[in-house]
Amino acid sequence: MNLIHRKICSSEKWAATVEERLAPWLKDRDLGDDVLEIGPGFGATTKVLLDAVPKLTVLEIDPASTELLRAKYGDRAEVVEGSGAEMPFADRRFSAVVCFTMLHHVPTRALQDAIFAEAARVLRPGGTYCGSDGQLNFRFRLLHIGDTMNVIDATTFPGRLEKAGFAQVSVDVRPRELLIFSAVKPG
């Protein structure tokens, strides 16, 4: 992340916005008893998830962010440093896998696809993979100058998730250019 992006994503204002948007969305979902969050960054989404799920594991690739997450939430969540494309977890461990506004930071389509496949691998049958990501607009592009920005194409995303092993795929682009998705690992 570039400096501006880091400043925004670590701000109290961002954390409040995330809570305002994510908490109602989570109330409509049963994520089960053991949830994995991929790429929590500074932990704004993690904070909200901790109040909504019984058990949370977070997987973060950035060492500095991992240490920050351990300091903030290590007493309430299992914090693991590692890549979503090569998850250090057993097959069928989690009831749900979630990721919020992080997929566009994955530099290649192949690595994104590896994350989808790994999410399917670590999910129990009937488990849900869901989350959100930004979509291309002028403000989003400005925020990512000098930063990784590999935006998910909403038209090809369902097929990519199906190829990774998911069914019941739902992809919706909402106002403000936000992509919301969910998929289920077949039983």
Rank of each mutant, 00 (worst) to 15 (best):
K27E: 15
K27Y: 03
R29D: 02
R29Q: 11
D30I: 09
D30G: 13
L31K: 02
D33I: 05
D33W: 11
D34M: 14
V35L: 10
V35R: 04
L36I: 12
E37Y: 10
E37T: 02
G39M: 08
G39D: 06
P40D: 01
T45D: 03
T46A: 10
K47W: 14
V48T: 06
V48N: 02
L50A: 10
D51G: 14
D51M: 09
A52S: 15
A52L: 13
V53F: 03
V53P: 08
P54V: 08
K55L: 13
L56N: 00
L59V: 09
E60A: 04
I61C: 12
D62T: 14
P63V: 04
P63I: 02
A64D: 14
S65E: 14
S65W: 11
S65G: 09
T66Q: 10
T66I: 10
L69N: 02
R70E: 02
R70I: 00
R70T: 00
K72T: 04
Y73C: 04
D75K: 13
D75V: 05
D75S: 15
R76E: 12
A77N: 10
A77D: 09
A77T: 03
E78S: 11
V80P: 08
E81F: 11
G82D: 11
G82K: 05
S83K: 11
S83T: 09
A85I: 04
E86F: 05
E86Y: 04
P88S: 01
P88V: 01
F89P: 02
F89K: 06
D91K: 07
R92C: 15
R92A: 15
R93F: 09
F94H: 10
F94G: 07
A96T: 02
V97R: 05
C99M: 13
F100C: 02
M102N: 06
M102T: 08
L103N: 01
H104P: 08
H104Q: 04
H104K: 06
P107N: 03
T108M: 09
R109E: 15
R109A: 14
R109Y: 12
L111M: 15
F116M: 05
E118M: 03
E118H: 03
A120W: 05
A120T: 00
A120N: 07
A120L: 02
V122S: 00
L123E: 07
G126N: 05
G127Q: 05
G127D: 05
C130G: 04
C130D: 05
C130Y: 01
C130Q: 10
G131Q: 01
S132P: 11
D133N: 12
G134M: 14
G134K: 03
G134P: 04
Q135A: 14
Q135R: 13
Q135D: 13
L136Q: 11
L136V: 12
R139K: 14
R139Q: 12
L142H: 05
H144Y: 09
H144P: 11
I145Y: 06
D147Q: 03
D147H: 03
T148S: 05
N150F: 07
N150I: 08
N150H: 13
V151R: 01
I152G: 07
I152Q: 08
I152F: 07
D153N: 14
